[in-house]
Amino acid sequence: MKAPSIIALVVFIILAILHQDVWNWDNANLVFGFLPVGLAYHAAYSIVAATFWAIVMKIAWPTRLEEWADESDHS
């Protein structure tokens, strides 16, 4: 495995663990005076996860396969 693949796998596992936010289940505090902590956590988590997958897509996209498919179409 290449280093970027291993890093992506490790970050994926960390995100999977962080998705189970058991530490916020009984937290009744509000963020900005109106937003429950659990909802604010998941909003931030969603932004981090979307950014992570955008980076993974940019780094790990199979461009060689795409180039091969484009070459096949023109012949």
Rank of each mutant, 00 (worst) to 15 (best):
51 T>V: 12
45 Y>I: 05
15 L>R: 06
22 V>G: 05
17 I>L: 11
27 N>E: 09
63 T>H: 10
44 A>C: 11
21 D>H: 08
47 I>A: 11
23 W>V: 14
37 V>D: 05
64 R>F: 10
29 N>V: 05
32 F>M: 11
11 V>H: 05
56 V>W: 00
11 V>I: 15
18 L>N: 11
5 S>K: 12
22 V>C: 03
8 A>T: 13
57 M>I: 15
32 F>Q: 12
42 H>N: 09
18 L>W: 07
38 G>V: 08
28 A>D: 15
33 G>V: 04
41 Y>H: 03
51 T>P: 01
22 V>S: 09
30 L>M: 14
33 G>R: 04
25 W>C: 10
30 L>C: 06
52 F>D: 02
21 D>P: 02
4 P>K: 07
57 M>R: 14
17 I>E: 08
43 A>W: 09
8 A>W: 00
16 A>S: 13
48 V>T: 13
61 W>D: 07
63 T>K: 11
29 N>S: 15
45 Y>K: 02
50 A>E: 00
47 I>D: 00
43 A>Y: 01
46 S>H: 03
12 F>W: 14
22 V>R: 15
33 G>Q: 07
30 L>V: 13
32 F>P: 03
42 H>Y: 10
56 V>F: 00
58 K>A: 15
61 W>K: 10
54 A>K: 13
61 W>M: 12
64 R>P: 03
54 A>G: 10
11 V>P: 00
5 S>M: 10
62 P>R: 04
63 T>E: 10
28 A>K: 11
33 G>E: 03
43 A>I: 12
58 K>V: 15
56 V>N: 07
24 N>M: 02
26 D>A: 09
14 I>T: 13
36 P>A: 00
38 G>K: 03
27 N>I: 09
26 D>T: 09
45 Y>W: 01
57 M>P: 07
4 P>L: 04
51 T>N: 08
8 A>Q: 02
53 W>P: 07
36 P>M: 01
40 A>R: 00
58 K>C: 15
40 A>T: 01
30 L>E: 08
10 V>A: 15
57 M>Q: 09
58 K>F: 15
44 A>F: 08
46 S>F: 11
36 P>K: 08
53 W>N: 02
37 V>C: 10
52 F>P: 06
26 D>Y: 05
39 L>K: 02
59 I>K: 12
40 A>K: 02
55 I>W: 01
62 P>W: 11
17 I>N: 06
58 K>L: 15
30 L>W: 07
18 L>F: 12
31 V>T: 10
51 T>M: 07
39 L>F: 05
62 P>N: 13
25 W>P: 07
62 P>L: 07
39 L>D: 06
48 V>L: 03
9 L>Q: 14
43 A>R: 07
39 L>A: 08
27 N>F: 04
19 H>S: 15
38 G>E: 08
12 F>C: 10
33 G>K: 01
31 V>M: 04
27 N>C: 06
42 H>L: 07
32 F>W: 14
39 L>V: 06
30 L>D: 04
24 N>Y: 05
40 A>Y: 01
4 P>R: 05
35 L>D: 00
47 I>M: 01
26 D>K: 12
6 I>T: 10
22 V>H: 06
46 S>D: 02
6 I>N: 03
48 V>F: 06
40 A>D: 01
59 I>Q: 06
